[in-house]
Design a protein around this nucleic acid. Sequence first.
DNA 1: ATAATTAAGTCAAATATAGTCAAAGTCAAT
DNA 2: ATTGACTTTGACTATATTTGACTTAATTAT
Lengths: 156, 156
Amino acid sequence: MRNISDIIEGYLKGVIEVSERDYIEIKRNEVAEKFQCVPSQINYVINTRFTADRGYLVESKRGGGGYIRIKRIKLHTKSDVLSDVINRLEHGASQSMAEDIVFRLLNEEIISKREAKLILSASDRTTLLLPLPTRDEVRARIMIAMLYTLKYQSSI
Amino acid sequence: MRNISDIIEGYLKGVIEVSERDYIEIKRNEVAEKFQCVPSQINYVINTRFTADRGYLVESKRGGGGYIRIKRIKLHTKSDVLSDVINRLEHGASQSMAEDIVFRLLNEEIISKREAKLILSASDRTTLLLPLPTRDEVRARIMIAMLYTLKYQSSI
DNA sequence: ATAATTAAGTCAAATATAGTCAAAGTCAAT
DNA sequence: ATTGACTTTGACTATATTTGACTTAATTAT
């Protein structure tokens, strides 16, 4: 029995998939109604599943004719995607941030499954075993160093 | 009468056996309920019987819709070399030691050139930027974690 | 302009799971 | 009887999800 958040996530991704544009617009209340949940549940799904680290951009408008717009960040080259995530890592990286980034790279076929596992294992908190905030800083440096080598290789 | 841990182990293996997928998902509380034991007993069984060395990979999620997923994995064919190398890393790793190891793995075609670069960049002293002896300890843990994932690969 | 209406956003409490750790218990081999 | 490995138990912790009351913003009607 899966949870409703995963179901809504899957639904929204499906809608994006079949959409002709590179973004979709939803009405929070309609989606909540469709899945029989409170409207703020939609915010929860968006905040946890459609983050910038995962490659999404979200905009919204309140009031009459309000909407939530979800956009897949579509960068042109693999090198651009790597630059983007490296940038995001500059200010430290939590484990969940690292995971989101690795899954995004896997999804965009920039890294292989084996490489994903390598990166995740190296940046796992039980591997680093350092106190915060050092741990997040070291994790960020490790991630950046690894992605940097990929960026150079992939752009040659 | 065998002990409850053995019984639960046998039950879970049976479930994996008949499962069409190569993994199963259980709910900790349900299994505990079924065998009339405390939930943490399930953790005990998993930690002692479904280890990577025995060919299993375990993932889990907490919160609503949480689960424990148990997956069969298979050993990498070059597993012996990896075991050997991992062993030698147990007592810390200098940068030159890490480099030697990576070149050996590359030579024996256990890792690709890209993977070699990933590992080297992650374990470089300018990446870790930690004082000794911490740096060598963290490097060793990172190397071990990465090589460990290579030793065991998911059977998917 | 101002008020009413319509949407979305925030935040914290309640709920639902799983994880950790150490004390206590069991049992077989000295 | 003692020891030591393994097992059982439960209190405490960590994390993810669900829910709803309250807030904020944009539009529409007066």
